[in-house]
Design a protein around this nucleic acid. Sequence first.
RNA 1: GGGCGAUUAGCGCAGCGGUAGCGCACUUCCCUGACACGGAAGGGGUCGCAGGUCCGAUUCCUGCAUCGCCCACCA
Length: 844
Amino acid sequence: MSEEGNQEQPERAKTVDGLEEKWTRWWSEKKIYEYRGEGRPGTYSIDTPPPTVSGHLHVGHVFSYTHTDIIARYKRMRGFDVFYPMGWDDNGLPTERRVQNYFGVFVDTSLKFDPSFKPPLEGGKAPKDFRAVPCSRQNFIELCEKLSQKDEEQFKDLWVKLGLSVDWSRTYHTIGRECRRISQLEFLRNLERGQAYQKMAPVLWDTTFQTAVSQAELEGREYPGFYHKLLFHGEGGDVAIETTRPELLAACVALIANPKDPRYARLKGKSVRTPLFGVQVPVLFHEAAEMDKGAGIAMCCTFGDATDVQWWREMDLPLRPILTKSGRICPQVPEWIESEEGKRAFEKLENLTAFSARKEIAALLKESGEMEGEPVPTSRMANFYEKGSKPIEILPSRQWYIVNGSHDEKLREKMLECGRALSFHPAFMEKRYENWVEGLSQDWLISRQRFFGIPFPVWYRVTKEGDADYSSPLLPSPEDLPVDPSSQAPRGFKEEMRGKPGGFVAEPDVMDTWAGSSLTPLLASGWKRDEGLFEKTFPMDLRPQGQDIIRTWLFDTVLRTWMEFEKLPWKDVALSGWILDPDHKKMSKSKGNVVVPKEPIEAYGPDAVRYWAASAKLGVDTAYDEGEMKIGRRLANKILNASNFVLELGSGEGEIGRVTSRLDLSLLSALAESEKRATQALEAFDHASALQEIETFFWSFCDDYIELVKDRAYRGDESARNALRIAIDAILALFAPFLPFVTEEAWHWAHPEGLSVHLSAWPEPVPTGESPEGYRQAALCLSMIRKQKSEKKASLKTEVESAKIFGRGAAAASIAACDLKAAVHAKNMEFAPGEGETGAKVEF
RNA sequence: GGGCGAUUAGCGCAGCGGUAGCGCACUUCCCUGACACGGAAGGGGUCGCAGGUCCGAUUCCUGCAUCGCCCACCA
């Protein structure tokens, strides 16, 4: 730093500490990551996953978002105009709960929007006798947006600290006005095309949240139960069946055996009487009855499980539901129970939860002698709503659906084709998509009996008798969207007509949160909002996401995009693995092993944390490992240090001249090879291999090349100085997608004109005509001579009498003769090429 | 039960038809004219098991085992 003019420059950073703030501000001021809107085909657009803002920050977030950012930065350096927006997911149950508690409110859809509404709480602790206050859905949404802002700031703060190159002028909310408008609009279009429909049918029902749920939200869990052996009474004697759900006995509509089962052939055409309730039910035969399960004959109830639904449908059985929406036995004796004893028995079960009713009915059966033996404990898999705590029940109710190919082979095949056309990274993840599509058994149930969410833009006429007429819904026109039917009246109706005969009622349900999320490519790219932007950014290029939501977010997006455009929403899907804690358990809040991401960022620096994330391949579960971050930090420091040294050796910034010496050219050839391999890896979304490649080259550059040429460079050799400058520029550019802070810092030392490394061109391999072999062999020789010094326990700077290189590598290494001589402090340097193994002999 | 992945040095991971590689940790050495928030050198593995294909398998095929994930399984 002896040169004039450098006096003014601030001192070069020696460590990575404190770089974040400086460059974060500069990037933001210079709008480095802004999408410029240059249009196709130079745009690279990313369908960023909107994080659940009410969720907790987690190192898993840091992990997967870093992977995406590496791609974004790489593409930007390849010259793409990168469209990298950020969404905030503030729709759905987690937010609903958080808003309820934070503001002390709950939604009452019968209330009208009140512009002057003030929530009773604003965070903090509720007073002792506090009662939550009802508010309209619109008010609730506004509170949600208010609270989300705080949550978003936390997330944004993390993303900025991590160095995500998101264009912060492009954000959206999943409960925001635009998302509501697009979701409702697309729903209306689905409806018009016959892709959305409503029907009364058995649905999967969560009794805790009291809402229908979809197949995609189910989760199998072990659930303890008891086999009960019940006796049904027939003409020729009793028939024993085994069941784990005796509480549904009153809902029994038939007994079902396999047609091939000789044990029950005698019952063909017969009927039996149910225990306790004395209801006559037929004995029927169906392939789906498994001979080796239980007694081989099943009681079909409406509804105990999916097989019951199948039997009920296929054999046209009567509907006898006895569970209410809260999962309790209904409060009055159903009309099909006619006997007095039956009625009395039923009365004992009324209003009990399924769980309590099970015990009660077992006692009743025991008493009446209609249960054989004692209940036998068993553990079985039961379906749960993923956020619920009680098993799913199946209840008949009216719901909205979107077709998904479950009952339409052509659509299913289309969806499978879409899966094959997408490039999954890693490729084997496509199987998960395929398995899901092949296993679809129901259309997508999109209505939820919740209060917070995107409302269906639907009203129903009320008949003169006062009943809602679901057969011809009243719909808004697209320009009126978004609407909240619970506080707005449909066109042609006055608000006073709400709920009155001859008037209208609102559809009270809201959409599944995935119904909105499945439209993120449309939402982000400005469909029906900014057609110019849409043209440039849609279809998108990349969908990064978690592997756990292939069956939801990924599939639903493919489905709905296909319905609207008959196109794929994007070309590539990048799936990150899980973050495991250091003991290889999946991190989860309930286990208390979650690491708050701010801590490692502050302790090791963002580049170091990114290094840890970047060293894991897509789709590979990875342990949280601070050791890896330490290595990242060391690498980042080394980059600063090496850059500084190279600039000193290479006499500062300024023009880079020609490289003429063979060793220097050979180094540049080795660099070109690494550039080529790193580029290939990144093109294949293999950031981990790319990083490895660059890192390996860099360490060799520091340990071998710099050591070899520094003497020559000190003496002012132009070729060495130029090669050092060329190499360090390339190294900084190659590392830039991974370690954006240090590379930016060092880049500015070499390029005081003030351009960002992140807008510089990705290095192109340049042929030099010299083989990289000379450099590699010279590096090897250096290492061998060091080894001999090390064995003698001599310092590396120990001067030696002579060093002789022999064997196969000697010829190639001889291009570095002078440099080696200086680097190993040898008085004499000799090369004796031969056939044998390359070796070195040092005379002390 | 079906599918998908994993199984390589104490730990974390690469690799992939030609008799094993990286990082951490470990041992020894070096404050060498960039860096001690550093550097050099070294020890350590019959590549889960059993078959098969091949001149040759850690790498391909077939079984098996263990672990993980997804789906199905509620009588």
